[in-house]
Design a binder for these strands. Structure first.
Length: 830
DNA sequence: GTCTTGCATGGGT
DNA sequence: AACCCATGCAAGA
């Protein structure tokens, strides 16, 4: 007869005996009835280990916990600042203090269901993988003075936890939307006989919610119903879970295969290192799931799973998330174009599919039910294709779910599992947040944006300018524009020229979604791993494509090649451009142009010559034009009022340029185009430059590009040159000219229709600029207009005062001057 | 002609 | 060289 596992007992194990803790072998300790009772009461250690070492006091209640003991290892959590906290206090704090990640339900009384749903999706998306930033921002939610308007504005950056869903809908009386909330749950400190059993965990929480919880409506909006569910403590409690795996199966593999139960069962997020109890020392190089039907060891799979599929979440976040239920993050995947397309099939990373999803032995697969973050159930089909002696796992039928989450290629789907029932949950995370807070969030998140791998550029509506969240890698800018430029740089047919514009890209994609190709006819939003970037390499710009174009600077150490077309020289850069620092063009009281440049370190604005192209990183120390102000400690010239006007000026210029046709932008001077407001972190990084000049050219190539020296000297293109570069530029030129003619025709037609506008124009022909300057902000007020006449750097807004101000900015004011303008632009580059 | 399905291909790791 | 996986594409519905 088996004896009690407790060495201090050794009583026979009877039928009334119970199971105790899980041992490192994966098996559960068989205890005699007395010991089992003590264990279930949570005082096993107090009875048997009282004189042992390792007792510590809870930092909150002072309760002693036998730390370090396998029996009590799930009864406490380790505090970041040191010390421990018993699970009772953990649960208390979870109950009585608002989850910083979730607003009090009070806020949602007036919210419509749609708003709530939207909030859920967005917030879940945030928490699943965007890192801890939302938690930092979250406390503002609890400011009682926060207005609903403010609240709504903050929605995209807020977070959602499953518990929050429960709270929300419990309060709104919509339990059908919660996640299995109607189930009678048991606290799941451990899994015994395939079902959670009571134990120390429940006991420590008895004073809060008891070991069992059957949901009851709450009347106190500030005290949320604490279901059952324990805080998931990565280093302890998780080891008792076998997330997603059938408990019977768990026992099977632990008993049959003698695999470490912990390692075999625990499916921790790869990003959470301390999820892995390493004490077992069981390491295996075998596959987590073999195709011959052998049981899968999740833990083994873990160690092999690609980190890129690991959710980006910290232990604390996970704890917060699991304030109501235990959530095991399984993996995530960035949606490719195929995944998000009409095919309704999502390719799953093989290792993740094999590790986390049910085993399938035939290509037909199995139906797989998942829930989304709203609690809606979706029935997918999990299957695989044989592929090169391997498998390609697919989740079919995902399109409706993905669409319901408004996910597109480049976004991320996250797979989680609710414990203990093992329900799979598919979450989603947008690759970018809406303009206006995206940059801010991205900057705040810093290195937490690892999942923003792809670059997507979007136009919110057809015809609008692009809102292009752009992730810039140290040596690579990933906007469609620049990527194209880089690609073009390798091809003499598509070298980067001043006249390039990418309007076609916008028109190519219905709805404004733009995914430029990394491969032929493929989508840019796909998993171009070369475009991925490390966490600390990411900055995110909220900037339009045209703005990006305006910020382009020719490589400082690379001279352009001169292409002669129709007798005009056009500077053409073999190398991709770099991004310059934006400045604000201004004019002093005597009409001289200059620029305001902002120091990257002190943010003070310095006056620099108008013809200077600043590098992306520029500080006061580089202000060689004004030595007196070459230190950050020196005050700036601008008084606050002037600075305000300056920024207004910049904003007006930005708006004005957005209203202008792309073709105009393509030919504007760089300085003018650089007057853009962008958000950046740590400055804009220079673009990469190809190390090989013509990677696609073969040795012996005699094209004009290859035979020309890097300095731009040597033979030049003739007018009759038919090389690819010339042909391309000619074609572009013709396109621009045709657009210009169309624009001229349209302008004439509009002028005829609006004679009053003509009368309002000044004699210098800058009607549109002057007009826009007044009307774009919707203020045609005279006093407002007059204000702009007062400050020197405001004059560029009113072209009547500064007639020459933007004359050159309109390359199509005179069709005959097209090439002159090209030359001017070239000259500015040079 | 369009959509779906399932395999093949090839770039990337 | 093996493997993964995005996606092309042909065949069938």
């Amino acid at each position: 007869m088996a004896l009690c596992f407790n060495p201090m007992c050794k009583q026979p194990v009877t039928e009334r005996s119970g199971r105790g803790w899980r041992c490192e072998t994966g098996q559960f300790a068989d205890l005699c009835p007395r010991c089992a009772s003590a264990y279930e009461d949570g005082n096993f250690c107090e009875v048997f280990h009282l004189t042992a070492s390792g007792w510590r006091c809870c930092e909150c209640c002072g309760k002693q916990i036998h730390c370090g003991c396998v029996v009590s290892r799930h009864m406490f959590i380790l505090l970041d600042a040191g010390g421990i906290k018993c699970m009772a206090c953990v649960k208390k704090s979870s109950v009585l203090t608002p989850n910083p990640a979730w607003p009090p339900p009070l806020y949602y009384h007036g919210s419509s269901p749609d708003e709530v749903k939207d909030l859920l999706v967005k917030n879940w998306s945030s928490i699943v993988g965007s890192g801890p930033v939302p938690w930092r921002e979250a406390p503002s939610w609890f400011n009682k003075n926060t207005s609903k308007v403010e609240l709504n504005l903050k929605i995209p950056s807020q977070v959602e936890v499953l518990g929050g869903i429960d709270r929300l809908y419990a309060h709104k009386g919509a339990p059908n939307c919660s996640l299995d909330k109607n189930k009678k749950w048991e606290s799941s400190g451990r899994i015994t006989n395939g079902s959670p059993s009571g134990g120390a965990l429940e006991n420590v929480g008895n004073d809060v919610s008891g070991s069992k919880y059957e949901e009851q409506p709450t009347t106190n909006p500030n005290v949320t119903p604490q279901s059952n569910i324990s805080i998931l403590e990565p280093s302890t409690q998780t080891s008792h879970f076998c997330p997603g795996l059938n408990p019977e199966f768990i026992r099977e593999i632990t008993e049959k295969d003698k695999v470490s139960g912990i390692n075999a069962c625990v499916i921790p997020p790869p990003a959470i290192n301390n999820f892995f109890p390493s004490s077992s020392g069981v390491e295996s190089n075998s596959r987590a799931q073999t195709h011959n039907g052998n049981p899968r060891g999740g833990g083994e799979a873990q160690s092999q799973l690609p980190l890129s599929n690991g959710p980006r979440i910290t232990n604390q976040e996970l704890q917060a998330i699991s304030g109501q239920t235990a959530v095991t993050f399984l993996f995530e995947k960035t949606l490719s174009a195929s995944d998000a397309g009409r095919m309704s099939r999502l390719v799953l990373p093989k290792k993740c599919a094999e590790a986390y999803l049910p085993e399938i032995s035939n290509p037909e697969g199995i139906p797989l039910m998942m829930k989304d973050m709203k609690g809606n159930e979706w029935m997918f089909h999990f299957r695989f294709w044989p592929n090169n002696n391997s498998r390609m796992y697919l989740l079919e039928g995902v399109t409706p779910c993905i669409q319901s989450m408004q996910l597109v290629a480049g976004d991320t789907v996250t797979f989680c599992r609710l414990e203990p029932e093992g329900t799979l949950v598919m979450g989603g995370r947008k690759s970018s947040t809406p303009p206006g807070n995206q940059s801010k969030e991205s900057i705040n998140t810093g290195n937490e944006l690892s999942t923003h791998r792809e670059v997507t550029t979007r136009a919110s509506r057809p015809g609008e300018s692009f809102s292009a969240p752009i992730h810039v890698e140290d040596n690579m800018i990933s906007s469609s524009l620049l990527t194209t430029s880089q690609a073009n740089s390798a091809d003499p047919k598509n070298k980067w020229t001043e006249a390039d514009n990418f309007k076609t890209a916008k028109n190519d994609v219905p709805g404004g979604e733009i995914f430029l190709s990394k491969k032929k006819n493929s989508t840019f939003g796909s998993n171009s791993k070369r475009l991925r970037m490390g966490n600390n390499q990411i900055i995110e710009l909220e900037i339009t494509l045209k703005e990006v174009q305006g910020l382009l600077r020719p490589p400082s150490d690379y001279a352009p090649q001169i292409v002669i077309i129709d007798g005009n020289e056009i500077a053409e850069f073999e190398e991709p451009p770099v991004i310059g620092r934006p400045t604000i063009l201004a004019t002093d009281c005597v009409g001289r142009k200059f620029q305001w440049a902002q120091c990257e370190d002190c943010c003070k604005w310095r006056r620099i010559p108008s013809d200077i192209l600043l590098p992306s990183r520029w500080t006061c120390y580089k202000n060689s034009w004004d030595p007196e102000r070459s230190l950050c400690s020196v005050a700036q010239e601008l008084i606050p009022e002037e600075l305000e006007d300056l920024l207004i000026t910049a904003k007006k210029q930005k708006f004005k340029k957005q209203d202008e046709p792309d073709s105009v932008d393509a030919l504007e001077g760089l300085n003018e185009l650089a007057n853009l407001a962008i958000h950046e972190k740590g400055g804009i990084l220079p673009l990469s430059r190809t190390t090989s000049k013509h990677p696609r050219h073969r040795p012996g190539c005699t094209c004009i590009v290859c035979i020309q020296s890097p300095g731009g000297k040597g033979p030049k293109h003739r007018q009759t040159c038919t090389c690819n570069a010339c042909v391309t530029i000619k074609r572009r030129f013709q396109t621009i000219m045709s657009k210009h003619e169309m624009k001229q025709t349209e302008d004439k037609r509009q002028k005829l229709q609006q004679p009053e506008d003509i009368l309002r124009c000044s004699d210098n022909g800058n009607c549109s600029s002057s007009h826009d300057a007044v009307t774009n902000d919707g203020s045609g007020h005279d006093s407002y207009k007059m204000k702009y006449f007062e400050s020197p750097f405001k004059r560029q807004i009113d072209l009547n005062v500064q007639p020459e101000g933007e004359e050159d900015l309109s390359p199509f004011s005179n069709s005959g001057s097209m090439m002159r303008l090209l030359q001017n632009a070239t000259g500015r580059f040079l």
